[in-house]
């Protein structure tokens, strides 16, 4: 899934896969923080974002 999105030009930092058990609250927070930082560094996504009107 991620591979094809990356292949067609979606930056790979925008797609993350992680396995977090419901008991791993800290890991969840860490992962979300890490991803948020990465995505923020990339700036807003303009791809595959349909423009209406």
């Amino acid at each position: 899934m991620g591979n094809l999105l990356e292949h067609v030009g979606i930056e790979k930092e925008r797609v993350h896969f992680s396995w977090i058990s419901s008991a791993e609250a800290t890991k969840f927070v860490d992962v979300v923080k890490k991803i948020t930082e990465k995505v923020r560094a990339l700036g807003p996504n303009k791809k595959l974002k349909k423009q209406y009107n």
């Binding site: 990356e6 292949h7 067609v8 030009g9 979606i10 930056e11 790979k12 791809k47």
Partner: peptide
């Protein structure tokens, strides 16, 4: 695969 994200996007 060797292209940058932007190049890939433009290619497709």
């Amino acid at each position: 695969e060797a292209m940058s994200s932007e190049e890939k996007w433009d290619f497709f």
